[in-house]
Amino acid sequence: DVEPGKFYKGVVTRIEKYGAFINLNEQVRGLLRPRDMISLRAENLNVGDEIIVQAIDVRPEKREIDFKYIP
Protein backbone atom coordinates (compact mmCIF):
# COMPACT_ATOMS: atom_id res chain seq x y z
CA ASP A 1 0.00 0.00 0.00
CA VAL A 2 1.20 3.48 -0.88
CA GLU A 3 1.09 5.95 2.01
CA PRO A 4 1.08 9.75 1.75
CA GLY A 5 4.39 11.27 2.83
CA LYS A 6 6.48 8.17 2.12
CA PHE A 7 9.16 7.98 -0.56
CA TYR A 8 9.24 5.38 -3.33
CA LYS A 9 11.46 4.43 -6.24
CA GLY A 10 9.60 4.47 -9.53
CA VAL A 11 10.13 4.34 -13.27
CA VAL A 12 8.93 6.97 -15.74
CA THR A 13 6.60 5.17 -18.16
CA ARG A 14 4.95 8.01 -20.08
CA ILE A 15 5.38 11.76 -20.39
CA GLU A 16 2.54 14.14 -21.25
CA LYS A 17 2.16 17.94 -21.14
CA TYR A 18 0.30 17.61 -17.83
CA GLY A 19 2.92 15.39 -16.15
CA ALA A 20 4.85 12.16 -16.06
CA PHE A 21 3.40 8.78 -15.21
CA ILE A 22 5.48 6.91 -12.65
CA ASN A 23 5.16 3.17 -12.08
CA LEU A 24 6.14 1.85 -8.67
CA ASN A 25 5.37 -1.70 -9.82
CA GLU A 26 3.06 -3.40 -12.30
CA GLN A 27 -0.07 -2.59 -10.29
CA VAL A 28 0.78 0.86 -8.88
CA ARG A 29 1.05 3.94 -11.08
CA GLY A 30 0.74 7.63 -10.31
CA LEU A 31 1.20 11.08 -11.79
CA LEU A 32 4.02 13.56 -11.23
CA ARG A 33 2.67 16.97 -12.27
CA PRO A 34 5.00 19.76 -13.45
CA ARG A 35 4.14 21.89 -10.39
CA ASP A 36 5.38 19.05 -8.16
CA MET A 37 8.77 18.70 -9.86
CA ILE A 38 10.95 20.77 -7.55
CA SER A 39 14.27 21.44 -9.36
CA LEU A 40 13.37 18.95 -12.10
CA ARG A 41 11.99 19.96 -15.45
CA ALA A 42 9.72 17.65 -17.41
CA GLU A 43 11.95 17.94 -20.46
CA ASN A 44 14.78 16.40 -18.41
CA LEU A 45 12.75 13.24 -17.82
CA ASN A 46 12.88 10.30 -20.16
CA VAL A 47 10.79 7.15 -20.35
CA GLY A 48 12.69 4.49 -18.42
CA ASP A 49 14.29 6.89 -15.92
CA GLU A 50 14.29 5.68 -12.31
CA ILE A 51 13.51 8.44 -9.81
CA ILE A 52 12.60 8.75 -6.15
CA VAL A 53 9.18 10.33 -5.58
CA GLN A 54 7.09 11.18 -2.55
CA ALA A 55 3.42 10.20 -2.47
CA ILE A 56 1.45 13.36 -1.68
CA ASP A 57 -2.13 12.35 -2.40
CA VAL A 58 -3.46 8.79 -2.48
CA ARG A 59 -7.04 8.13 -3.59
CA PRO A 60 -7.48 4.34 -3.57
CA GLU A 61 -11.17 4.53 -4.47
CA LYS A 62 -10.16 6.14 -7.79
CA ARG A 63 -6.85 4.24 -8.04
CA GLU A 64 -5.02 7.58 -8.29
CA ILE A 65 -1.75 8.70 -6.72
CA ASP A 66 -0.09 12.10 -7.02
CA PHE A 67 3.66 12.27 -6.56
CA LYS A 68 6.15 15.01 -5.76
CA TYR A 69 9.82 15.00 -6.74
CA ILE A 70 12.18 16.36 -4.10
CA PRO A 71 15.91 16.13 -4.84
Rank of each mutant, 00 (worst) to 15 (best):
D1K: 13
D1P: 12
D1F: 15
D1A: 13
D1T: 14
V2T: 03
V2R: 02
V2P: 05
V2H: 03
E3V: 15
E3P: 06
E3D: 06
E3C: 12
E3W: 10
P4Q: 10
P4Y: 07
P4I: 15
P4V: 15
G5L: 07
G5Q: 04
G5N: 05
G5T: 03
G5M: 06
G5Y: 07
K6S: 06
K6L: 08
K6I: 07
K6E: 05
F7N: 05
F7D: 01
F7T: 04
Y8C: 03
K9N: 05
K9V: 11
K9D: 01
K9G: 01
K9F: 09
G10L: 06
G10P: 00
V11K: 10
V11M: 08
V11Q: 04
V11D: 00
V11T: 11
V11L: 08
V12G: 00
V12K: 00
V12M: 01
T13E: 04
T13W: 05
T13P: 00
T13N: 02
T13R: 04
T13K: 04
T13V: 11
T13M: 07
R14P: 00
R14M: 06
R14N: 04
I15L: 09
I15N: 01
I15F: 03
I15D: 00
I15A: 01
I15V: 10
E16G: 14
E16I: 08
K17D: 09
K17L: 10
K17R: 13
K17S: 12
K17H: 12
K17P: 13
Y18C: 08
Y18H: 06
Y18V: 08
Y18I: 10
Y18L: 07
Y18T: 05
G19E: 05
G19P: 01
G19I: 10
G19W: 10
A20C: 08
A20H: 03
A20E: 01
A20L: 12
A20V: 15
A20D: 01
F21W: 15
F21I: 13
I22C: 02
I22F: 07
N23F: 10
N23P: 00
N23E: 13
N23V: 11
L24M: 03
L24E: 01
L24W: 02
L24I: 14
L24F: 05
L24A: 01
N25Y: 08
N25L: 07
N25C: 11
N25D: 08
N25W: 10
E26K: 14
E26F: 14
E26M: 12
E26G: 13
Q27T: 14
Q27V: 13
Q27Y: 14
V28H: 07
V28Y: 09
V28L: 13
R29T: 12
G30W: 05
G30I: 12
L31V: 06
L31K: 05
L31Y: 04
L31E: 02
L31P: 02
L31C: 08
L31A: 02
L31I: 09
R33P: 03
R33N: 04
R33E: 02
P34I: 15
R35D: 08
R35W: 07
D36M: 08
D36A: 06
D36H: 12
D36P: 02
D36G: 07
D36E: 06
M37P: 03
M37I: 07
M37W: 07
M37S: 05
M37C: 09
M37D: 03
I38M: 10
I38Y: 08
I38S: 12
I38P: 09
S39Q: 13
S39L: 14
S39C: 15
S39W: 14
L40T: 07
L40M: 11
L40V: 08
R41D: 09
R41P: 08
R41Y: 09
R41K: 14
A42Y: 15
A42W: 15
A42G: 10
E43D: 13
E43K: 12
N44W: 14
N44R: 11
N44S: 14
L45P: 00
L45T: 01
N46D: 06
N46T: 13
N46K: 15
N46P: 00
V47L: 10
V47E: 04
V47N: 01
G48Y: 02
G48V: 01
G48P: 00
G48I: 01
G48A: 01
G48D: 02
D49V: 05
D49E: 06
D49A: 06
D49R: 04
D49I: 06
D49P: 01
D49T: 05
E50R: 12
E50P: 08
E50Q: 11
E50H: 14
E50Y: 15
I51Y: 02
I51R: 00
I51L: 09
I52Y: 10
I52P: 01
I52A: 02
I52K: 03
I52G: 00
V53P: 00
Q54R: 05
Q54G: 02
Q54W: 10
Q54S: 03
Q54I: 11
A55M: 05
A55V: 15
A55N: 01
I56A: 06
I56W: 07
I56C: 09
I56K: 09
I56H: 05
V58H: 05
V58S: 06
V58I: 09
R59D: 07
R59V: 03
R59Y: 05
P60L: 09
P60C: 10
P60I: 10
E61F: 06
E61G: 12
E61C: 09
E61Y: 06
E61L: 09
E61I: 08
K62A: 10
K62L: 13
K62M: 11
K62T: 11
K62Y: 08
R63K: 14
R63N: 14
R63V: 06
R63C: 13
E64K: 07
E64L: 14
E64I: 12
I65K: 03
I65C: 10
I65T: 03
I65N: 04
D66S: 11
D66V: 13
D66K: 12
D66A: 09
D66C: 12
D66F: 15
F67N: 03
F67Y: 03
F67H: 03
F67R: 02
K68I: 11
Y69V: 06
Y69G: 03
Y69E: 11
I70Q: 08
I70C: 10
I70D: 11
P71C: 15
P71F: 09
P71R: 13
